[in-house]
Design a protein around this nucleic acid. Structure first.
Lengths: 352, 352
DNA sequence: CTCATTTATGAAAGCGCTTTCATTTTGCGT
DNA sequence: ACGCAAAATGAAAGCGCTTTCATAAATGAG
């Protein structure tokens, strides 16, 4: 348990060692220029003679000066902090996105401020107000329920990147995953394996992506010339329990089916459990496909065939976009296309 | 670009509606007192006559004044923000703790600032410095690898609550889960079911809790008069893959065993998968117990018997403790005791 | 009813940085 | 070389709040 690695540091060179706050004024006087000049160099606000610039840079390095974000914020400059509105900080899906955001922002010197909106427009609004009062330089909003108008209003004053929408405005960039195509892919996969009676567990109808996934399912079915059967569509709300209940209801309905496509992995897990409890084996008896490819999908039993959505990449891309906006550029980022990941929960009916 | 929002003010119900920043000065002049007085009321820094106090309170409510945390921070007062150092923002276990922290802090008017230390002392130190530069009022550190000394040093200037340690100092409160007892409980459960050859997959030996869990396992074994068999102890690192590998190694070793106790749920999932792949059924052939009771444990197949650790409560308690310290009180919080949650992954050998 | 104390309150000085605004340099046209 | 526009820099005014420090009001002892 020896923390050798930390102890190893005996001879702290200089930088660290609980530096007593170096201020901008100190570096200014240290090299005989005015604070304004130092500030200008720091922010690239104006051009200063190479001579002084160099002197100041040197002084900054020598003194180990770090601008105080709080003071900057008050003075109306940047705070180097970004507000991130997620829906639940412990969401298995968004959690990974947060990591992506944190990473990308971190390397750019920004700190994220995470808040949870809990899928509630009012709460979301409040979160945003708090973030704004903390003078964040920008906002990343992961989906959420806020109205598009409210979002656009916010974006007038602060750059915003939002996922799960198709909006566009001067200070607003939106990133949308192709849920439709993803659902098509999933359904098509089952069809290709010879399944004809494919049940679908829907997501929360309050989420636009749930609707898109449903549409993808129907479209793929149609393309294969299979009539839509409403009895095979079960309502869900993206949580495990709802997947479990849906599967139970499906079994009890005595409707024939050889496969289930759940609108997200969590419901797929729930469905798998329900099937298991009824003595139905995945994939031998029933094939199962999820959506999202969240962490657990790799290690569940059987490993889940699903649509990979790359939450991590989503987070990174959102962060990069915002950084670009902050730099005055137009975001050039694009979302990954959905990708089918075949694991062990689906089986072909064609080659028995 | 019409700033309709400002003009809109005609019928503003009252509170919300994009209030144009009300400042402390405004409320001060609104009721004819000095800013100092308002500030004093806000912070309870000094006693002011009931007359003015009431007038000010009313003005604050009427104007919908909200103190600017950034300005407060600069002026040396509180920022109403708490730095939270987690190890990975997307950890299934700590994620839930973060939710607890967020919730508890939120109702007290504080905002958490989450940062990830990635189980790396240096990075953790850097995180803390960033948080400090943002003038957080307090720090919650979830386990982590920072040395106790470093922690104590930090706590000299800022109140700190840390989990997974047994430290105590003026500004430092620590919260430790009884890993030893938890592991005893798990092992004992298996013993009570008649298991005698119980394998153990260890956690990352760099974590003190992993060592405690191991100790609990050995102690329970000893208490049952079962000799410790080193061949039944497999090294793990708390990740699924390591659980999977451990189980494989165990099977290949041809050592006899009827149960596996994994030092956390993630490794239990991995082990379950490995067993499944080798055609071994849980719990019919082998019983399996995890540790942590993380979200997935309820919905995996079969649902995992495990030790409940209440990450959510942990987060809440940490937050409450810090809030108490901030209020000048001594924290009175205590951690929950470990609790065995019996689900479907264990089976009795006694009544076949 | 006066003078020394204690309170309540206000004025003003920052906190560390950004940003006008004014001033000093520098560059150029003629 | 002279004057004027453009460029570089400094002085100073905040950002919104907390906090001495000082003043005015209130309390009380003599």
């Amino acid at each position: 348990m020896k923390t050798t690695k930390t102890a190893k540091k005996i001879k702290t060179p200089d930088v660290n060692a609980h530096a007593k706050k170096v201020t901008l004024e100190m570096v200014a006087s240290a090299c005989g220029v005015s604070p304004s000049t130092v500030s200008r160099i720091l922010n690239g606000t104006a051009i200063v003679s190479p001579k002084k610039r160099e002197a100041v840079d040197r002084a900054i390095a020598a003194l180990g000066f770090i601008p105080n974000p709080v003071a900057r914020g008050l003075a109306g400059g940047r705070t180097l902090s970004i507000g991130v509105v997620t829906q639940a900080i412990d969401s298995p899906f968004y959690g990974v996105a947060l990591r992506g955001i944190e990473e990308e922002l971190g390397t750019a010197g920004y700190s994220p401020l995470f808040v949870s909106g809990h899928w509630n427009a009012d709460e979301e609004k409040r979160c945003i107000d708090v973030l704004l009062s903390r003078r964040v330089d920008g906002l990343i909003i992961l989906t959420g329920r806020l109205s598009d108008e409210a979002l656009q209003r916010v974006s007038k004053a602060t750059p915003v990147v939002v996922t799960g929408r198709n909006l566009s405005a001067p200070g607003l960039h939106s990133l949308n995953f192709n849920n439709f195509k993803g659902a098509q892919l999933a359904t098509h996969h089952l069809l290709a394996l010879g399944h004809r009676r494919i049940a679908f567990i829907t997501g929360d109808p309050g989420h636009p992506d749930a609707i898109e996934r449903m549409r993808g399912y129907r479209t793929a079915l149609k393309a294969a010339g299979i009539p839509f059967n409403n009895a095979l569509v079960l309502p869900g709300n993206y949580l495990e329990e709802s997947g479990q209940m849906a599967a139970e209801r499906l079994i009890d309905s005595r409707e024939q089916f050889s496969a289930i496509f759940a609108a997200n992995d969590q419901m797929a897990f729930g469905a798998a459990l329900a099937l298991h409890r009824r003595g139905i084996t995945v994939p031998d008896d029933i094939s199962l496909v999820g959506f999202d490819d969240q962490a657990g999908a790799t290690h569940c039993i059987p490993p889940l065939t699903t649509i990979h959505q790359g939450a991590y990449e989503l987070g990174r891309i959102a962060a990069i976009s915002l950084l670009q906006m902050l730099a005055g550029e137009k975001p050039t980022t694009v979302m990954q296309e959905p990708r089918l990941v075949i694991r062990g929960s689906t089986r072909s009916l064609l080659t028995p």
